[in-house]
Every structure is written in C-alpha cells, then in structure tokens.
C-alpha cells in the first residue's frame, strides 16, 4: 500500500475522520436530524460545486459561478410574478447560455478561462445591478410557496433539497460515466493535445463543460433565492471559495482528468463538516474565510498532478 494507491481514497477517509472527531466531541452532532438539516443547508453550495467540477475536470476554472448565482437570484425574484413556473426555465437557459459564452471566449478566442469567466462574471454583476436597481428584492411569499414551495419543504424528516441534490448528482454522474460527452471530457482533462490529435472536437466539448457549469450555478442561484424568498446582486457572495474547496478536497485536481462529480459530493460534505465543527470549537464565523483559504492551499498542493505541468506559471 503506497501513497499513490491510497490517494484516491483520501477524500472519504478525511470525511470519516472529521465526522468521528466532531462526533466524539459532541455526540449531538451525529443525530440523524442534525446531520440531515446540515446536509439540507449545504445544497445550494453543492449544486454550484457540481457545476464547477465540470470546468475543473477539463483543466479550466469557472470564477463566474458566484456572480451567476447572484444574478439568477435577482432574475428569479423579478420575473417570478410574470412568468410563474417558467422562470425556472429562464434561469437555466440564461446560465447555460452565459456558460456557453465563457466557453466560446476561452476556446475560440484563446482567452484563459480564469479571465474569461471573470469577465462574464462582471457582465452578470452589471445585469444584476441593472435589473434590481441595486436593491434587495423580495418574492411574493404566496406565489413562491405555490410554485417552488416543494423545493424547500420536508418529506418526513428529510429536507426536500436533498432530493434535488440527489437528482442532479444522478444526472451529472450519468453524463460523466455513461455518455460520449463524459468520456470526451475525461479525454480533454487527461490530455488536451492528445484528445485533439485523435480527432475529438475538443472545442465543442469544452464549451459544453462551461455551459453545464453555468447552468448548475444558475440552479444553485434559483434554489438559494427560493430559500431566502428574494434576491440581491451580492447575496451569494461567499459561495465561490467553499465551492472551489469542495471540488478540490473531493479529489478533482486543478489539472483535471481525474475525480468527478461523486468526489465533489464527498468534498461538499467535508466542507459542511468543517463548517459545523468550527461552530463547535468556537471558531467565529469571521474566521471561516481564512480557514477555507488555508484548506484550499493544502487541498491543491495535495491533489495537483505536477507531471502535467512542465513549468508552473
């Protein structure tokens, strides 16, 4: 058993150790009701991380996810009254389209993805400010409950968000494991030049990866706005860092090619447990960002595949 063979198992071992650690400190933590509500609360973040996984899986990054979710909370709040249930379709199409745009700028115009997604994020921020008039918006509570109430209720003791998360995870897992698209994304992540040389339409698949990332960020924003019954241009700030952390501690390295959406599910749980444990150990909410920043550095350093980087820029 050498370290390399153990490496893929790190994420779930980390998760178990963390859960055991917190559980011993405070047995209340392990109560099913507590664990379930913990999991329910993290779902918007999980959906965003799920999308980011696709961007990182091909060796790129999507820094627009947070601005996208911000914009969607505004869009959902503004158009709920006039569009009803169709507002969900509008949000997803918008996310998919803007993700496609990021992908186009990256692949066709040769702008590195961290710049292109930052730029698209700037556009999202402008749109959000324009639509909202820079105010916090509220949804009509009755209409929200009638149309989207099912998203945030409970079935028995299980929060409904978890069913949404499970459904999206299943779809993403299907795309990753059972479709040509999933295979192609793996090829691009493992070695883009080789993938292109073997006749794969790399450009199209990369654009699709960014589009999926955008669509899932939009769904995260939609769910978040339903939960809060409103939206604002900066309401989802603070999502980006833990979302990236979730993908990386799950075991999808920045260099892409390995890991995947199941890893991100474990990574998100690790993030949730770290958050909860910080509360138990009396770490203030104000310190969380620092902790996650440090966790991010450790996670990248442990997972990154240095054989793919001839020079580290």
């Amino acid at each position: 058993m050498d370290l390399q063979r153990l490496k893929p198992h790190f994420p779930w071992i980390t998760l178990l150790v963390l859960v055991a650690f917190v559980g011993i400190t405070d047995p209340n933590f392990l109560k099913p009701a507590n664990l379930l509500s913990l999991a329910g609360d993290i779902v918007p973040l999980f959906i965003m991380a799920l999308g980011l996984t696709f961007a990182i899986y091909i060796g790129g990054i999507d820094l627009s996810a947070q601005s996208m979710a911000n914009m969607i909370t505004v869009v959902a709040s503004v158009y709920l009254a006039s569009l009803g249930l169709w507002v969900a379709a509008l949000c997803i199409v918008l996310g998919f389209g803007l993700g496609l745009l990021s992908g186009f700028i990256t692949t066709r115009l040769f702008v590195p993805s961290f710049i292109s997604t930052l730029a698209v994020g700037g556009v999202c921020f402008s749109v959000a400010q324009w639509l909202s008039g820079n105010r916090a918006l509220n949804m009509d509570a009755d209409q929200r409950d009638a149309l989207f109430g099912w998203m945030i209720g409970r079935t028995g003791i299980i929060p409904n968000e978890l069913f949404i998360a499970a459904a999206l995870l299943a779809i993403c897992l299907f795309i990753e494991r059972r479709t040509t698209l999933g295979r192609a994304l793996k090829a691009v992540g493992a070695g883009e030049l080789a993938a292109a040389a073997s006749g794969l339409n790399v450009t199209r698949y990369k654009m699709l990866a960014f589009a999926i990332s955008g669509a899932l960020a939009a769904i995260a924003g939609l769910l978040f706005s339903v939960k809060l019954s409103g939206g604002a241009p900066t309401i989802a700030n603070g999502f980006l860092l833990p979302a990236i952390v979730a993908v990386l501690v799950g075991g999808t390295p920045l260099t892409g090619g390995v890991g995947g959406v199941l890893n991100t599910a474990i990574g998100t749980m690790i993030v949730a447990v770290i958050r909860a444990s910080m509360l138990y150990f009396g770490v203030q909410a104000t310190q969380q960002q620092m902790v996650f920043g440090l966790v991010l550095i450790v996670a990248i350093a442990l997972t990154i595949d240095r054989s793919k980087l001839r020079t580290v820029k």
């Binding site: 700028i105 115009l109 040769f110 702008v111 730029a119 700037g122 556009v123």
Partner: peptide, 30 residues
Amino acid sequence: PDYLQDGMLGLLVIVAVVLSTDRRSISFVK
C-alpha cells in the same frame, strides 16, 4: 448609469486579450 461599469470592464478585458494574442503561436488555453 454606473452599474454598466463591471460589464464594460468585462468586455474590455476580453477584447484586449484577443487583440494582444498571437493566435498562430498557441494551440490551446486552459
């Protein structure tokens, strides 16, 4: 209106990168 500024910056940075890139010398970007 000043809310256009971030979107404007976004377009600007993309145009600038595109114009400053020698497209024949690179095969792909991440």
